[in-house]
Amino acid sequence: MTRQITQLGAFALEQLAYLGRMGLFLIHSVRGIARPPGKFGPVVKQIQFIGTRSFVIIGFTAAFSGMVLALQGYYTLSKFGSEGLVGSAVALSLIRELGPVLSALMVTGRAGSAMCAEIGIMRIEEQIDAIECMAIDPKAYLVTPRLLAGLIALPLLTAYCNVVGIFGGYLVGVELLGVSAGSFFDGMETSVVWEDVRMGIVKSFVFALLMIWICTYKGYYTGVDRGSFGAEEVSRATTSAVVLASISILVSDYVVTSIML
């Protein structure tokens, strides 16, 4: 009995230490904004990295999500004889919910995983040690630019995702199913209000923070806990980063929605 309690206690302490280290990691990364090296160039480079990696795939996902939303929305709404509202249905679901979530998940899979692997390789090849020995703060050098870039790029990609998704919905709703273009856009204009847009923006910031935080953290501490620095540690770290980031995005989506509603 005492042994089980000890084990439980040890587990709890371990988790607490883990959370503490994650928290410190974020604090140090934010603190890195005020530390050398300069951030402008690296941030632009990272925005480009995130953008080029995710642009096409987000376009695809958004287009088909918008199309299927229109299809499903049309089917449901036609039962109540209000097919004209399909435009608002598509726009609201995208702006409030699907746009931020889909973009965040896609960016996690494309750019977040790559970030984690890149930093993980730097860890196992002693590059992070080398940065420290050059009297450079490795978090300010590696993590801060990525964090800033994520906070800039993801909201923009979300907006782009919304636009493409609505266009996809337009293709199916108006061109295929014959809803009039006027009622498609008119319904959208009257039903989408600032609160909806604001929720989407808040979500994309929250998701960006979580995603970059988790992916860079997992990469940064690749192999450190297990004390082994082989190549398989990078793939382990990357997998767990993507899984944890995706779950956090979905959970925080619920939390943000319930707070803001």
């Binding site: 002693e126 590059q127 080398a130 020995c133 050059m134 009297a135 450079i136």
Partner: peptide, 30 residues
């Protein structure tokens, strides 16, 4: 650390930078 230089076993060069840029990193920062 700004008084020391360290060569690691693997060299620990940054893969995304050219060799000359690698050497310029500490100079650029400091």
């Amino acid at each position: 650390r700004s008084r020391i230089g360290v060569l690691f076993q693997s060299g620990a060069l940054f893969n995304s930078l050219t060799v000359a840029e690698n050497i310029g990193v500490p100079l650029k920062v400091h």
